[in-house]
Design a protein around this nucleic acid. Structure first.
Length: 278
DNA sequence: AATCGTTCCTGATAGC
DNA sequence: TGCTATCAGGAACGAT
């Protein structure tokens, strides 16, 4: 499932490969992914558009187009953007949109579970419609800001970290990893955390995300970069997806619990639920 | 205002 | 073997 590091990997690659090109046309193979337009209108609007830049906001990919427009792509869990030639996608039954670019290049939006969404519209309207908290790498995201966002919430710290309205880009994998590094249980309510505990969490967010970007993200099952290559961060995972394995720090067994409908993975010894009672 | 439950969807896996 | 049931999960949405 693409989170900030995976989306950033895609954005960085796309920037180098397709900025400056025109979208000659688009094939709509499954229109359910189009959020803003009918297939006919989408095809008409997109034809001839020039790609000015590629950006990211939380887990959204922003393709800046001419005429002050933006194409917003959310990959949700199983979405991919793949750059290749049209013939490469003919047998991909999950390719829902294929953008025909210059020469023989094509960019396919594919998504097994069909949760991903594509929106086309005015740049300012689309960006201002996003209800998203600060980007972790924004200079305004300092400890004071983090504390003001998190410290009064009654929900579990994992849920708070994953809520895009609080902080942008953290999902199920990296919330588990941040909390393992900070030795904080994902079940602790955010407003139960001490200043020192908040500092530990905050201190791990940027370095972890930075390292995951360096290794081009985590591929659990579906994430691939635009060339179809898996991310390399999986080997560093300490909690996520390691149920029944030994904690690499203390040797206890990693467990999985349901937290607000999501699976949270943690070490019950290193990350105690009730540290004050121990 | 904040939080909770439901919904979308397919493929992998478990159980019989 | 082959069937059915269950589960995974981001975020929009409606309900409380």
């Amino acid at each position: 499932m693409p989170e900030l590091p995976e989306v950033q990997t895609i954005v960085n690659d796309l920037k180098h490969k397709i900025v400056g090109q025109r979208i000659k046309s688009v094939l709509v193979l499954w229109s359910g992914c189009l959020k803003s337009h009918s297939p006919a209108k989408f095809k008409k609007e997109i034809a001839g558009a020039r790609i000015l830049n590629i950006g990211r906001r939380a887990k959204n990919i922003l393709v800046y187009l001419d005429k002050n427009r933006v194409l917003l792509i959310h990959l949700k869990m199983t979405g991919n953007l793949l750059l290749g030639e049209l013939k490469d996608f003919k047998e991909n039954k999950h390719a829902h949109l294929i953008f025909i670019l210059n020469g023989s290049q094509a960019l396919a939006f594919s998504d097994i579970r069909k949760f991903g969404k594509v929106t086309l519209g005015n740049k300012d309207e689309i960006i201002s419609s996003l209800k998203i908290g600060p980007e972790p790498f924004d200079k305004h995201f300092n400890f004071t800001k983090f504390k003001s966002i998190v410290s009064r919430k009654r929900r579990s710290i994992k849920t708070v970290l994953m809520d895009q309205g609080n902080i942008a880009g953290i999902g199920n994998i990296y919330s588990d990893e941040i909390l393992w590094l900070a030795k904080i249980s994902p079940l602790r309510s955010a407003n139960s955390l001490s200043e020192a505990e908040l500092k530990k969490i905050y201190g791990h967010i940027k370095p972890l995300l930075k390292k995951a970007i360096k290794f081009r993200g985590t591929s659990i099952s579906d994430f691939k970069d635009i060339a179809g290559v898996s991310g390399k961060y999986k080997k560093f995972l300490r909690a996520y997806g390691r149920v029944g394995e030994k904690c690499s720090r203390c040797g206890s067994f990693i467990i999985r619990v349901k937290i607000n409908g999501r699976s949270g993975h943690y070490c019950p010894k290193c990350q105690p639920n009730y540290p004050n009672i121990q």
